[in-house]
């Protein structure tokens, strides 16, 4: 009971911070906009395969930018304060929740911008959006945990990318294959793969809950 209460309070604090100092939100928004604009001027109407590949790669970079600051923004003093009031599990779950939400919003925005500016090759729009949300969620979970590691190592976002890229390759690969099916009216989207991705997400959450307490102690 109190644990859920803690998680919600911490989550609210993150949302409030985000609303108060909007620069980070708008920063990422600008990042998406600028990237799409550059892509539009470079290749105005990419073919489906290129569209798909570009979309997921940019999704990856958006995720790194959006999630990187989640642990880096907390100063040492503030972490000490959280340490005294909440358990590490609550803290990491709140962070995961907040970053998932942030990334879901960003995913919807970026898919909308992609379709607006680069043309719409998607045949099954709704299932593609579902895939994008699932993918954004997967990415945000993995990178939230890596951000925690990078923050503890007192490193910048660069090390996060180094640590994260090999881990995310398989998921990204699966997502690209899945969304290829959404581009083609003949292919059906394999349910097995979606279940596999969800299982991976649940595994990441479990690992984060198990391993975060070890990062937390200082």
């Amino acid at each position: 009971m109190s644990s859920i209460h803690h998680i919600i309070t911490l989550f609210k604090k993150d949302v409030l911070l985000e609303i108060r100092q909007q620069y980070s939100f708008y920063g990422i928004l600008l990042y998406i906009g600028a990237t799409v604009l550059v892509l539009q001027t470079a290749i105005s109407e990419p073919e489906t395969k290129v569209w798909n590949g570009l979309f997921w790669v940019i999704q990856l970079f958006i995720c790194i930018n959006a999630v990187a600051k989640s642990f880096l923004q907390e100063s040492k003093g503030r972490m000490l304060y959280f340490y005294s009031i909440a358990s590490p599990t609550d803290f990491v779950l709140a962070k995961l929740l907040f970053n998932s939400l942030l990334m879901l919003v960003m995913s919807v925005i970026s898919v909308a911008l992609f379709i607006l500016f680069l043309g719409n090759p998607v045949e099954k729009v709704w299932s593609f959006i579902g895939l994008v949300l699932l993918g954004g969620w997967s990415l945000s979970l993995v990178f939230t945990f890596l951000a925690a590691i990078a923050a503890k190592a007192q490193q910048n976002a660069a090390i996060m990318a180094v640590l994260g890229f090999p881990l995310i390759i398989p998921q990204l690969l699966l997502l690209m294959r899945l969304s290829n099916a959404a581009f083609n009216p003949i292919l059906t989207i394999p349910v097995n793969t979606i279940l596999l991705l969800m299982a991976l997400d649940i595994m990441v959450i479990l690992l984060a809950v198990i391993l975060f307490p070890f990062l937390w102690k200082d």
Partner: peptide, 11 residues
């Protein structure tokens, strides 16, 4: 150690 376990579990 934390990264090792996390990465291996993902691998």
């Amino acid at each position: 150690a934390v990264y090792n376990i996390f990465a291996y579990a993902m691998l």
